[in-house]
Design a protein around this nucleic acid. Structure first.
Length: 275
DNA sequence: AACGTACTCAACCGCCCTTCG
DNA sequence: GCGAAGGGCGGTTGAGTACGT
Protein backbone atom coordinates (compact mmCIF):
# COMPACT_ATOMS: atom_id res chain seq x y z
CA UNK A 1 0.00 0.00 0.00
CA UNK A 2 1.50 3.28 -1.03
CA UNK A 3 1.87 6.22 1.19
CA UNK A 4 -0.56 9.02 1.09
CA UNK A 5 0.89 12.23 -0.16
CA UNK A 6 1.85 14.56 2.65
CA UNK A 7 -1.11 16.66 1.70
CA UNK A 8 -3.77 17.00 -0.88
CA UNK A 9 -1.90 18.73 -3.64
CA UNK A 10 -4.95 19.68 -5.66
CA UNK A 11 -5.38 23.42 -5.70
CA UNK A 12 -2.28 24.04 -3.67
CA UNK A 13 -0.02 26.91 -4.54
CA UNK A 14 3.58 26.27 -5.45
CA UNK A 15 6.57 28.43 -6.16
CA UNK A 16 7.90 31.50 -4.44
CA UNK A 17 6.20 32.71 -1.30
CA UNK A 18 4.63 36.13 -1.22
CA UNK A 19 5.04 38.57 1.65
CA UNK A 20 1.39 38.09 2.54
CA UNK A 21 1.82 34.33 2.79
CA UNK A 22 4.91 34.79 4.91
CA UNK A 23 3.01 37.03 7.23
CA UNK A 24 0.15 34.60 7.57
CA UNK A 25 2.52 31.81 8.39
CA UNK A 26 4.55 33.81 10.87
CA UNK A 27 1.45 35.15 12.50
CA UNK A 28 0.02 31.69 12.90
CA UNK A 29 3.22 30.21 14.27
CA UNK A 30 3.67 33.05 16.70
CA UNK A 31 0.18 32.60 18.02
CA UNK A 32 0.07 28.85 18.04
CA UNK A 33 3.61 27.62 18.00
CA UNK A 34 4.87 24.80 15.84
CA UNK A 35 2.55 21.88 16.11
CA UNK A 36 1.28 19.69 13.36
CA UNK A 37 2.66 20.97 10.09
CA UNK A 38 -0.01 19.18 8.14
CA UNK A 39 -2.63 21.29 9.84
CA UNK A 40 -0.73 24.55 9.65
CA UNK A 41 -1.69 25.66 6.15
CA UNK A 42 -5.36 25.02 6.73
CA UNK A 43 -5.38 26.79 10.06
CA UNK A 44 -3.24 29.63 8.83
CA UNK A 45 -5.34 30.10 5.75
CA UNK A 46 -2.62 29.18 3.30
CA UNK A 47 -2.94 27.27 0.07
CA UNK A 48 0.32 25.48 0.68
CA UNK A 49 1.19 22.03 1.83
CA UNK A 50 2.46 21.54 5.36
CA UNK A 51 5.86 20.58 4.15
CA UNK A 52 6.18 23.74 2.20
CA UNK A 53 5.23 25.74 5.29
CA UNK A 54 7.76 23.93 7.43
CA UNK A 55 10.47 24.51 4.86
CA UNK A 56 9.63 28.16 4.50
CA UNK A 57 9.74 28.63 8.24
CA UNK A 58 12.87 26.60 8.76
CA UNK A 59 14.87 28.02 5.90
CA UNK A 60 13.65 31.55 5.71
CA UNK A 61 11.29 32.89 8.33
CA UNK A 62 12.75 31.56 11.54
CA UNK A 63 13.77 34.55 13.62
CA UNK A 64 17.19 33.20 14.46
CA UNK A 65 18.46 32.89 10.94
CA UNK A 66 21.66 34.49 9.78
CA UNK A 67 21.59 35.73 6.24
CA UNK A 68 24.40 36.35 3.86
CA UNK A 69 27.49 34.45 2.92
CA UNK A 70 29.12 32.13 5.36
CA UNK A 71 32.00 33.70 7.18
CA UNK A 72 35.50 32.35 6.93
CA UNK A 73 35.15 30.65 10.29
CA UNK A 74 31.85 29.12 9.32
CA UNK A 75 33.31 27.85 6.09
CA UNK A 76 36.18 26.26 7.96
CA UNK A 77 33.75 24.59 10.25
CA UNK A 78 31.62 23.33 7.38
CA UNK A 79 34.63 21.79 5.71
CA UNK A 80 35.72 20.19 8.91
CA UNK A 81 32.29 18.88 9.74
CA UNK A 82 31.76 17.62 6.22
CA UNK A 83 34.95 15.62 6.53
CA UNK A 84 33.53 14.04 9.65
CA UNK A 85 29.87 13.76 8.82
CA UNK A 86 29.64 13.70 5.04
CA UNK A 87 26.51 15.12 3.43
CA UNK A 88 24.55 15.22 6.64
CA UNK A 89 23.68 18.83 6.16
CA UNK A 90 21.28 19.08 9.03
CA UNK A 91 23.89 17.71 11.41
CA UNK A 92 26.42 20.18 10.04
CA UNK A 93 23.91 22.98 10.31
CA UNK A 94 23.26 22.15 13.93
CA UNK A 95 26.83 23.21 14.66
CA UNK A 96 26.39 26.55 12.94
CA UNK A 97 23.97 28.77 14.78
CA UNK A 98 21.62 30.61 12.51
CA UNK A 99 22.42 28.56 9.44
CA UNK A 100 20.12 26.10 7.77
CA UNK A 101 20.96 22.79 6.20
CA UNK A 102 19.72 24.09 2.90
CA UNK A 103 21.93 27.13 3.07
CA UNK A 104 24.98 25.10 3.95
CA UNK A 105 24.22 22.57 1.27
CA UNK A 106 23.90 25.31 -1.32
CA UNK A 107 27.08 26.99 -0.15
CA UNK A 108 28.92 23.72 -0.27
CA UNK A 109 27.77 22.94 -3.78
CA UNK A 110 28.34 26.39 -5.20
CA UNK A 111 31.41 27.63 -3.38
CA UNK A 112 33.32 25.23 -1.22
CA UNK A 113 33.20 22.28 -3.58
CA UNK A 114 34.57 24.43 -6.34
CA UNK A 115 37.34 25.80 -4.18
CA UNK A 116 38.39 22.40 -2.95
CA UNK A 117 38.50 21.05 -6.49
CA UNK A 118 40.52 24.05 -7.54
CA UNK A 119 42.99 23.15 -4.87
CA UNK A 120 43.18 19.58 -6.01
CA UNK A 121 41.19 18.22 -3.13
CA UNK A 122 38.35 15.81 -3.62
CA UNK A 123 35.35 17.42 -1.91
CA UNK A 124 33.90 14.02 -1.17
CA UNK A 125 36.87 12.34 0.38
CA UNK A 126 38.75 15.48 1.44
CA UNK A 127 41.84 13.88 0.01
CA UNK A 128 44.05 15.06 -2.81
CA UNK A 129 42.70 14.12 -6.22
CA UNK A 130 46.02 14.63 -7.96
CA UNK A 131 47.79 11.49 -8.95
CA UNK A 132 49.83 10.44 -5.98
CA UNK A 133 53.59 10.67 -6.28
CA UNK A 134 55.47 7.45 -6.78
CA UNK A 135 55.33 5.38 -3.63
CA UNK A 136 59.04 5.57 -3.09
CA UNK A 137 58.81 9.37 -3.00
CA UNK A 138 55.83 9.51 -0.76
CA UNK A 139 56.97 6.79 1.53
CA UNK A 140 58.03 7.98 4.88
CA UNK A 141 56.67 11.48 4.46
CA UNK A 142 54.01 12.72 6.79
CA UNK A 143 50.70 13.15 5.02
CA UNK A 144 50.93 16.90 5.32
CA UNK A 145 54.13 16.92 3.37
CA UNK A 146 52.67 14.66 0.73
CA UNK A 147 49.78 17.02 0.23
CA UNK A 148 52.09 19.98 -0.06
CA UNK A 149 54.21 18.10 -2.52
CA UNK A 150 51.42 17.13 -4.85
CA UNK A 151 49.15 20.13 -4.58
CA UNK A 152 50.42 22.54 -7.17
CA UNK A 153 51.42 25.70 -5.35
CA UNK A 154 48.33 26.09 -3.29
CA UNK A 155 49.57 29.35 -1.88
CA UNK A 156 49.45 30.72 -5.35
CA UNK A 157 45.75 30.16 -5.71
CA UNK A 158 43.74 33.29 -6.03
CA UNK A 159 44.71 35.22 -3.02
CA UNK A 160 41.43 37.03 -2.86
CA UNK A 161 39.65 33.78 -2.29
CA UNK A 162 38.87 32.81 1.21
CA UNK A 163 41.90 30.84 2.32
CA UNK A 164 40.97 27.31 1.72
CA UNK A 165 41.58 24.32 3.82
CA UNK A 166 43.94 21.56 3.07
CA UNK A 167 42.24 18.96 5.06
CA UNK A 168 44.86 16.59 6.20
CA UNK A 169 43.34 15.28 9.32
CA UNK A 170 39.73 15.61 10.31
CA UNK A 171 40.87 17.33 13.45
CA UNK A 172 42.99 19.94 11.80
CA UNK A 173 42.46 22.38 9.06
CA UNK A 174 45.40 24.10 7.53
CA UNK A 175 44.78 27.57 6.22
CA UNK A 176 47.47 29.05 4.06
CA UNK A 177 50.15 28.13 6.47
CA UNK A 178 48.11 28.64 9.60
CA UNK A 179 46.86 25.66 11.48
CA UNK A 180 43.58 25.96 13.21
CA UNK A 181 42.43 23.35 15.64
CA UNK A 182 38.81 23.55 14.77
CA UNK A 183 37.70 20.85 17.11
CA UNK A 184 39.09 22.87 19.92
CA UNK A 185 37.10 25.83 18.82
CA UNK A 186 33.74 24.34 19.40
CA UNK A 187 32.19 21.46 21.09
CA UNK A 188 29.54 19.40 19.37
CA UNK A 189 27.77 19.20 22.68
CA UNK A 190 27.17 22.87 22.44
CA UNK A 191 25.34 22.64 19.23
CA UNK A 192 22.21 23.50 21.11
CA UNK A 193 18.92 22.82 19.47
CA UNK A 194 18.02 26.39 20.05
CA UNK A 195 20.13 28.30 17.69
CA UNK A 196 21.34 31.67 18.66
CA UNK A 197 21.91 35.01 17.29
CA UNK A 198 22.15 36.55 14.07
CA UNK A 199 21.18 38.97 11.49
CA UNK A 200 18.43 38.69 9.09
CA UNK A 201 17.54 40.43 5.93
CA UNK A 202 14.83 38.25 4.68
CA UNK A 203 14.29 39.95 1.45
CA UNK A 204 11.04 39.17 -0.19
CA UNK A 205 9.23 38.70 3.02
CA UNK A 206 9.54 42.04 4.58
CA UNK A 207 7.17 42.35 7.42
CA UNK A 208 5.34 45.27 8.73
CA UNK A 209 1.84 46.38 8.33
CA UNK A 210 -0.40 44.26 6.24
CA UNK A 211 -2.28 41.34 7.59
CA UNK A 212 -3.18 41.96 11.13
CA UNK A 213 -3.98 38.87 13.04
CA UNK A 214 -1.46 39.39 15.79
CA UNK A 215 -2.61 41.29 18.84
CA UNK A 216 -4.88 43.23 16.61
CA UNK A 217 -2.04 44.84 14.76
CA UNK A 218 0.89 43.34 13.01
CA UNK A 219 4.08 44.91 14.32
CA UNK A 220 7.21 45.29 12.26
CA UNK A 221 8.87 41.98 12.06
CA UNK A 222 12.26 42.30 13.72
CA UNK A 223 14.05 39.49 11.91
CA UNK A 224 13.45 41.23 8.64
CA UNK A 225 15.83 43.98 9.56
CA UNK A 226 19.57 44.06 9.77
CA UNK A 227 20.84 43.70 13.27
CA UNK A 228 23.97 45.67 13.95
CA UNK A 229 27.01 43.48 14.29
CA UNK A 230 27.53 44.23 17.95
CA UNK A 231 24.24 42.70 18.91
CA UNK A 232 24.95 39.42 17.26
CA UNK A 233 26.35 36.47 18.91
CA UNK A 234 29.62 35.95 17.12
CA UNK A 235 31.21 32.72 16.14
CA UNK A 236 34.42 34.25 17.37
CA UNK A 237 32.94 34.09 20.83
CA UNK A 238 32.93 30.36 20.60
CA UNK A 239 36.42 30.25 19.25
CA UNK A 240 37.50 32.44 22.12
CA UNK A 241 35.70 30.22 24.55
CA UNK A 242 32.92 32.68 25.22
CA UNK A 243 29.86 30.62 24.67
CA UNK A 244 26.64 32.47 25.33
CA UNK A 245 24.84 29.30 26.21
CA UNK A 246 27.05 28.99 29.22
CA UNK A 247 24.98 31.76 30.66
CA UNK A 248 21.53 31.27 29.28
CA UNK A 249 19.54 30.07 26.35
CA UNK A 250 21.31 31.73 23.41
CA UNK A 251 18.07 31.95 21.50
CA UNK A 252 16.59 34.04 24.22
CA UNK A 253 19.75 36.08 24.51
CA UNK A 254 19.53 36.87 20.88
CA UNK A 255 15.92 37.74 20.99
CA UNK A 256 16.42 40.04 23.93
CA UNK A 257 19.29 41.86 22.33
CA UNK A 258 17.50 42.15 19.05
CA UNK A 259 14.22 43.27 20.45
CA UNK A 260 15.53 45.64 23.06
CA UNK A 261 17.94 47.29 20.73
CA UNK A 262 15.89 47.58 17.64
CA UNK A 263 12.28 46.91 18.13
CA UNK A 264 10.91 48.42 21.23
CA UNK A 265 7.41 47.83 20.08
CA UNK A 266 8.00 44.17 20.57
CA UNK A 267 7.61 43.29 24.17
CA UNK A 268 8.90 40.51 26.32
CA UNK A 269 5.84 38.40 25.95
CA UNK A 270 6.55 38.12 22.28
CA UNK A 271 10.07 37.07 23.01
CA UNK A 272 8.75 34.11 24.88
CA UNK A 273 6.70 33.09 21.89
CA UNK A 274 9.86 32.26 20.01
CA UNK A 275 11.07 29.77 22.56
C1' DA B 1 21.90 47.51 -26.03
C1' DA B 2 20.94 42.78 -26.83
C1' DC B 3 21.80 38.27 -26.31
C1' DG B 4 23.82 34.07 -24.35
C1' DT B 5 25.88 31.73 -20.56
C1' DA B 6 26.99 30.88 -15.81
C1' DC B 7 25.82 31.18 -11.21
C1' DT B 8 22.98 31.34 -7.04
C1' DC B 9 19.66 29.83 -3.93
C1' DA B 10 14.69 29.20 -2.69
C1' DA B 11 11.65 25.67 -3.21
C1' DC B 12 10.15 21.13 -4.44
C1' DC B 13 10.37 15.99 -4.63
C1' DG B 14 10.58 11.67 -2.87
C1' DC B 15 12.66 8.56 0.23
C1' DC B 16 13.77 7.42 5.03
C1' DC B 17 13.14 7.54 9.95
C1' DT B 18 10.47 8.05 14.04
C1' DT B 19 6.37 7.99 16.54
C1' DC B 20 2.04 6.31 17.80
C1' DG B 21 -2.16 3.56 18.01
C1' DG C 1 5.10 -6.48 16.04
C1' DC C 2 2.82 -4.03 12.42
C1' DG C 3 1.24 -0.40 9.64
C1' DA C 4 -0.04 4.36 9.01
C1' DA C 5 1.00 9.13 9.61
C1' DG C 6 3.93 12.84 10.00
C1' DG C 7 8.29 15.03 10.03
C1' DG C 8 13.07 15.30 8.50
C1' DC C 9 16.58 14.95 5.22
C1' DG C 10 19.39 15.03 1.00
C1' DG C 11 19.19 15.59 -3.89
C1' DT C 12 17.49 18.18 -7.65
C1' DT C 13 15.25 21.80 -10.20
C1' DG C 14 14.38 26.17 -12.19
C1' DA C 15 13.56 31.20 -11.84
C1' DG C 16 16.04 35.19 -11.18
C1' DT C 17 20.31 37.59 -11.50
C1' DA C 18 25.06 38.60 -12.76
C1' DC C 19 28.47 38.54 -15.97
C1' DG C 20 30.67 38.20 -20.47
C1' DT C 21 30.65 38.81 -25.44
Amino acid sequence: MGRQPCCDKVGLKKGPWTAAEDQKLVSFLLNNGQCCWRAVPKLAGLLRCGKSCRLRWTNYLRPDLKRGLLSEEEEKMVIHLHAELGNRWSKIASHLPGRTDNEIKNHWNTHIKKKLKKMGIDPTTHRPVQPAPPPQEAAGLPEEEIVKAITPGHEAFCTDDVPMAQLLDPDDIVFAGEEVGVTAAYSPDQSSSSASSSSSTAAASSGGGGDSSFDGEWPDWPPMMDWPAESMWQLEDVVAGRTPWEFEDPFVTYQRIALFDHQETWNNSKIELFR
